[in-house]
């Protein structure tokens, strides 16, 4: 990690100031330990989430572009977003403005009314996870691990928006970078088939039947695979899976108690940062029982091997 690369523009997004303050707190502490400087973009505004685009395209793009313009004007070249929805919106505005000149012209006309301007592609927008694994790197992260998460089985949940529609070289269906990060921290990772499936998004607010079924599938599948917890990279995913878990249980007659944590919280714990400094306890479904396992290495039963003569080889990589 080079010197000039450890300072970033930082766009926390609304959630990190409220429903996901645990994400914000842990991100700041982890950054501190890793020697990263996250400079919050002054006076940023909401990205519009998934809602504004439904109303009117030009105002939606303009709303987002104000942030891009401010960040660029404040001298940032790279802007980190921890929230997947913000990340996607910021990326989408930048990329669409770059690709469609007519859109670019209109959005800049609107920005002009506020004395602002944005040249597409003058800012590189990245998700926090991408920055952690690409810039900091697994090796550096491993060097900072003082309390490995041995014995903890986690389901890595990427959700949608960090791999779709902009894939950036990550597999849009079956990414592995969060899995590898968690293994670096010493956790055991379960092969979670629904890792890029939807958490329900804003549907928890407008159609519980739809959303709760999506949440149920994720909890069911994670439980099926014996995960102690689900680790997420997005405030919306965390909120839906965590806060609505009791209601999902009520609706389906289930009794899941799967804690949902942010990946930065687990990084913090593995780095030896005190639990409350990384926002532990803010979760509705308590993580305390699961975290009780840390440090208590559990022997995994050896995976049943089918090696009788008849078995056919799996496809080679």
């Amino acid at each position: 990690m080079s010197q000039e690369h450890n300072a970033y523009g930082y766009y926390p997004g609304c959630s990190l100031k409220a429903t996901a303050h645990a994400y914000g707190d842990s991100t700041e502490r982890v950054a501190e330990v890793l020697g990263l400087t996250l400079n919050e973009v002054a006076d940023w505004n909401c990205c519009g989430a998934t809602e504004y685009m439904s109303l009117s395209a030009i105002p939606a793009y303009s709303l987002i572009a104000r942030n891009l313009s401010l960040a660029a004007a404040q001298g940032h070249q790279e802007m980190i977003s921890p929230c997947s929805a913000c990340y996607l919106n910021l990326r989408k505005a930048n990329d669409s403005m770059a690709k469609y000149p007519a859109l670019n012209e209109k959005v800049n006309r609107a920005l002009g009314a506020g004395g602002l301007h944005y040249d597409p592609n003058s800012l590189h927008i990245r998700h926090l996870l991408d920055m952690m694994v690409e810039d900091v790197g697994y090796e550096t992260i491993a060097e900072h691990v003082t309390k490995p998460l041995s014995g903890l089985k986690v389901a890595c949940y990427y959700g949608c928006l960090i791999v779709r529609p902009r894939t950036d070289g990550y597999n849009p269906e079956y990414p592995m970078h969060l899995d590898r990060l968690m293994q670096t921290l010493g956790a055991k990772v379960v092969d979670f088939p629904l890792k890029t499936h939807c958490c329900g998004g804003h549907m928890t607010q407008i159609s519980e039947e739809t959303a709760f079924e999506l949440i149920r599938r994720l909890l069911h599948n994670a439980a099926d695979y014996g995960a102690d917890m689900i680790v997420t990279v997005c405030p919306m995913c965390q909120l839906n899976l965590d806060a609505y878990q009791p209601q999902v249980n009520a609706m389906f007659g289930t009794n899941y108690e799967i804690p949902i944590l942010f990946f930065t919280q687990l990084m913090g714990l593995a780095f030896g940062i005190p639990a409350r400094e990384v926002g532990m306890g803010a979760e509705i479904t308590s993580a305390a029982p699961a975290l009780g396992k840390i440090g208590h290495e559990e022997m995994e039963p050896a995976r049943p091997k089918r090696r009788d003569k008849k078995s056919l080889p799996m496809p080679q990589p």
């Binding site: 089918r306 009788d308 003569k309 008849k310 078995s311 056919l312 799996m314």
Partner: peptide, 13 residues
């Protein structure tokens, strides 16, 4: 072929 023409799952049985 490897399964003597039997249609079987990857376990071979």
């Amino acid at each position: 072929g490897p399964t003597d023409g039997k249609v079987v799952l990857r376990d071979g049985i």
